[in-house]
């Protein structure tokens, strides 16, 4: 609505004001109309419903790992043996030092996002910890980077224990 280009000389201020007002009201309407179009590209409600994943931990034996999907990403859940807990607590990791106690809620359960912080590949469980085959980064049993190009430790997702053997990954 390009009414501003009007010549207004012969008709006084009232029309000038009226046209400006109408342009503003019309422009606001056009802007408001954009909202549903833009909003439709945001995650839909069924995608948002997957923002949380409930995981039953029973059945994971000590020393075993399970991979679950959360928001489309793999999450490693490792049930650590007392030896693994001890080994993880012994050091602060490599290039991104962080104590193990800060990375777990319950030392028996390590929950980390299985996406290498370097280029986004999924590391494999090999020996103690994980190895990322894309560029050779290595992570220990606390998910901390011990060698290679990865700049940071594996990320810990938000999660909470809802029962003794059940966790919910993601924020409510």
């Amino acid at each position: 609505m390009k009414k501003e280009t009007l010549s207004v000389g012969d008709c006084g201020d009232r029309r000038n004001f009226l046209i400006k007002l109408t342009s503003v009201v019309g422009g606001a309407g056009v802007a408001a109309t954009c909202v549903p179009f833009v909003a439709s590209m945001n995650p839909s409600s069924d995608v948002l419903a997957k923002a949380e994943a409930e995981v039953d931990l029973s059945g994971i034996t000590p020393g075993a790992m399970r991979t679950v999907a959360w928001q489309g990403k793999p999450v490693f859940i490792l049930r650590r043996t007392p030896e693994q807990i001890k080994a993880a607590g012994a050091s602060d990791g490599g290039s991104d030092p962080e104590p193990d106690s800060k990375r777990v809620q319950n030392p028996e359960w390590l929950v980390v996002i299985g996406v290498c912080t370097h280029m986004g590949c999924v590391p494999n469980k090999e020996g103690p910890g994980w190895v990322c085959h894309c560029h050779g980064s290595q992570f220990d049993d606390s998910g901390r980077v011990t060698r290679g190009p990865a700049p940071k430790n594996l990320e810990v997702p938000p999660y909470r224990f809802v029962a003794g053997n059940k966790i919910v990954i993601g924020k409510a």
């Binding site: 008709c11 009226l18 009201v25």
Partner: peptide
Amino acid sequence: LLYLVKKQI
């Protein structure tokens, strides 16, 4: 408003 604008013009 558009009606008023039309009338004025």
